[in-house]
Simulated assay, not measured.
Amino acid sequence: MSQYPSLSVRIWRTRPWNTNPLMRASDRFEALVRMLAAAAMLVAIPIAGAAGTAGYTAAAARISSDNSAKVAVTGAISGDLKRTAVVSARSEMTETHAEAPVRWNQNGRSGTATIEVPDTATLGDEVTVWLAPDSSPTGPPQQSSVAVGNAIGVGLAVLIEIWGAVLALVAFIAWMLGARRRADWEREWRQIGWQTGSDRR
């Protein structure tokens, strides 16, 4: 008893230029589509890499510009802390975040805002307040790792979109060819049944 052919052998036998007369034109077309799809998915990798690089460059420039515009001033906690328990998505542990009103002076102008402060802070403690160019409170400078994460996200999004579109197209073409084959088989079986008399009512 002969051994069943391996996967690589079966894939090789489905190549579009196979000289086997039993291979239908639809089989050759479907094999060609799969080959082109595989090539497109490989080409999508450097395209996604280029998109990720562009995303990193843009994000790094934006972060650098935003960070350079921020100014750090020293403020003092002027009210009671409000603590909130939050469950961390990474560690699944409960973390406590604290907010409190903080007052500061910058170039002779005073300001007040409720910002996040250390959980151990108390009334009157000095904290760092980051201000935007319009003197409104803002977040601390972002790290360069944010740009890296943005680049990875952009690259993966492009890759998934291209691969998803290619796989969807291949699946649609395979479904259409399968429906056509089933229709052909049904028509042929009816012809055989009519010729042998088994399809007569």
Rank of each mutant, 00 (worst) to 15 (best):
R34P: 00
G178M: 01
S88M: 07
R187N: 15
A69Y: 03
A171I: 08
E92D: 14
I160E: 04
A69D: 08
G52F: 04
R62L: 15
Y56W: 08
Q3K: 15
Y56I: 04
S145V: 04
N150P: 07
Y56L: 04
G124D: 01
A113Q: 12
L167H: 07
R200F: 09
P133C: 07
T120H: 05
L123K: 04
K70D: 06
G55L: 01
V166Q: 00
W104C: 00
A54F: 12
A37P: 00
S8G: 09
A51G: 07
A171P: 00
N105E: 07
F172M: 07
V148P: 02
T57C: 14
A40T: 02
Q191E: 07
F172V: 12
T96S: 10
S88W: 03
V166K: 02
N105I: 10
A179V: 04
E126Y: 14
D199V: 08
A48Q: 02
L156R: 11
S64W: 02
A38R: 03
A25N: 12
A54I: 14
T53D: 12
R34F: 13
D199W: 10
I160H: 06
W163V: 12
S136Q: 08
D125F: 00
R181H: 06
Q195L: 13
R103D: 05
R187C: 12
F172N: 07
G111S: 10
E161D: 15
P118F: 05
S6G: 12
Q106F: 10
G155N: 00
D184Y: 13
L159E: 01
T138D: 01
S78Y: 10
E161K: 15
S78N: 13
I11P: 02
D134F: 02
T14V: 09
W17A: 15
W194T: 15
R201N: 13
D80T: 13
A72S: 12
W185V: 14
V86T: 09
S135T: 12
E92T: 08
L123G: 05
G197W: 03
A85Y: 10
G178R: 03
V170T: 05
R34Q: 14
S6D: 13
R28P: 04
G197S: 04
Q143N: 11
D134Q: 07
L159T: 06
S91K: 02
E188I: 11
W104H: 01
L159K: 05
R181E: 05
A179D: 06
R103V: 09
A48S: 14
P133N: 09
R109V: 11
V117H: 00
W12P: 12
V148W: 08
V146A: 11
E126C: 09
V86W: 05
A157T: 06
M41T: 03
R34T: 09
N107W: 10
T96W: 15
N107T: 08
S68T: 14
A89L: 15
T96I: 11
E92F: 11
T114D: 03
E186K: 15
D27H: 10
F172H: 06
Q143T: 12
